[in-house]
Nucleic acid binder design. Structure first.
Lengths: 212, 212
DNA sequence: GGTAGATGCATACGCTGCGTATGTCAATGA
DNA sequence: TCATTGACATACGCAGCGTATGCATCTACC
């Protein structure tokens, strides 16, 4: 068979390295993942890694970028499906909690990432998610659904809250029950932002799209 | 001069190791802190470290325990000074944001700690802080000040929110302005928990004990 | 289409840093 | 005073990272 074009081979190598690293980082963690081991698992050596990503950190960045892109896409879909802006906002927060329950995301993006690469708010991908929520909050305040606060600050608070909720659920002995509690509490907290006149706190909270 | 009693020498050695490690972890971070270097800085060797703390992780645990004890003490004082339970709750959250701005706390407790030792909610010291806030929320709900939600879940959300706010402030180009925004938004979010009848949202929010 | 240059990736080497095994000396207690 | 415990240092081995170098293959230009 004829050889594939070089650019395609390169992309494949990069993808293999990212996939192997993602698996290793997600299971044993960044610090305990041996570059020799997981490059070998991909049928390569550290030479390829250093060539493409500079160092171990560079590879972690690439892995996180990939995962983050997937997360953003999933959140985008959730938002798109929601009937109202407010409902989309609630759904997005809950979806974020659910995603952060996945061990790979927890380990790589939420734990090792910040420790190795520094503050996540300066990552390009993370900024996309934040920007979306900020804009959403701004519009919600503008249309009078929620009280007027600094939208970016509120977005930071909400992201932090949901993130921590995920970690809490993940380590809880009964994740099912804990998850319900967390989601209920999250709704209560978010509904506190509603202006009292337009949308009083509803008994039982807003409906849950996933029945969790 | 006569030698100090042995137990005193031992405590001193432990204290010196913890102090040296704390300085190293707080500046260059856990991963880049060489045990040879900071034990030497304390006038000791790795032998002492392994004898007292087992390994590098054990020393990190000890450092975190020390910092956490200091944090809890500071929070306790803030709570004690507050005129009402609700005000104490607000003040505590703000104090938490302020503390998490300190580089040493951020680096050691908030970033490296979780990455190296795993979920913070399973740390004994962290649990103390959480337990206090949970109890506080339970009482606030009981006395009818805030809406009824699962107090533990809500505490987790609030801690996560404030924690993330700190990280956000720390990396912001203008921490002063950002800090004000974050604190305002935090108050708005927390005041959303108040039951509408007893304590309507007050123009300007609750007073700020530190004038930030 | 043949040759020169560039580039993807492997191999080889040195260095740093952790953990353990062993040694030594001082303090305690009978 | 002597035996024993325990605090701490020293010595060694090993894993893992980063770099320098080498090789083979693809592209570019004439």
């Amino acid at each position: 068979m004829a050889h594939k074009p070089r650019s395609e081979m390169i992309a494949e190598t990069r993808a293999k390295l990212i996939a192997a690293a993602r698996a290793a980082f997600g299971t044993v963690g960044y610090a305990d993942a041996s570059m020799d081991d997981f490059t070998a698992a991909a049928g390569l050596t550290r030479g390829a890694l250093y060539h493409h990503f500079g160092d171990k950190k560079g590879l972690l960045q690439a892995v996180i970028a990939q995962i983050d892109a997937e997360m953003n896409e999933r959140l985008r879909i959730v938002m798109q499906k929601a009937p109202t802006r407010w409902q989309g906002f609630i759904d997005e927060s809950i979806a974020y909690i659910e995603m952060a329950l996945e061990p790979e995301i927890q380990r790589i993006v939420l734990r090792d990432g910040p420790a190795v690469l520094g503050d996540p708010t300066s990552w390009p991908s993370q900024n996309a998610c934040l920007r979306d929520m900020t804009e959403n909050l701004r519009l919600l305040a503008e249309e009078g659904t929620i009280v007027a606060t600094d939208p970016e600050a509120t977005a930071q608070l909400i992201i932090g809250a949901t993130l921590n909720a995920s970690l809490w659920i993940a380590k809880a002995p009964d994740p099912e029950v804990t998850s319900k509690k967390a989601i209920q509490a999250t709704k209560a907290l978010l509904e506190g932002l509603l202006v009292a006149s337009s949308s009083p706190r509803i008994e039982g909270g807003s409906p849950n799209i996933r029945g969790i």
